[in-house]
Simulated scan of single mutants.
Amino acid sequence: MRVELPEPSADERAHSERLAALIRAEIAQAGGALDFARHMELALYAPGLGYYSAGATKFGAAGDFVTAPELGFVFARCLARALAPELEGGAADRGREVVELGPGSGSLAAELLLELERLDALPARYRLLERSADLRARQRETLQARCTHLFDRIDWLDAPPAASWQGVLVANEVIDALPVRAFALREEGLFARCVGVDERGGFLWIERPADAQLSTAVEQIKALSPNSFIVGGEGWVRGRSAYCSEVCTLLSPWLAEVTRTLERGSAWFIDYGYAHGEYYAPARSAGTLRCHWRHRAHDDPLILPGLQDITAWVDFDALACAGEAAGLTVAAHATQAQFLIENGLDEVFARAHSQAGGEAARYALAQQIKRLTLPSEMGERFRVMKLARKDGAAG
Rank of each mutant, 00 (worst) to 15 (best):
S53D: 02
A361C: 06
A121T: 09
R140Q: 13
M378Q: 08
P305Q: 10
Y52Q: 01
Y51W: 08
A242C: 14
E97T: 08
A33P: 08
A68V: 06
Y363N: 04
H295F: 05
Y274H: 14
L157V: 00
P8W: 00
P282F: 01
L302P: 04
A394W: 08
E7N: 07
A159G: 03
A61D: 11
A361E: 15
K370C: 05
G196I: 02
R24W: 09
A223N: 09
L101I: 14
T335L: 02
F191H: 08
L262G: 13
L119F: 09
G273F: 10
L178T: 05
R138P: 00
E17C: 00
P226A: 08
G90C: 00
V99T: 14
A393Y: 04
E26R: 15
E17N: 06
P209I: 14
A360P: 02
A10T: 01
A124L: 03
A322Q: 09
N343A: 00
L214N: 11
T288K: 07
A62E: 15
R138E: 08
E359F: 05
L328Q: 03
L387Q: 11
D176V: 09
S252P: 08
H298G: 09
G48L: 03
E207N: 15
Q220C: 07
L250V: 04
T335Q: 10
A14T: 13
P123W: 06
L129T: 06
L116N: 06
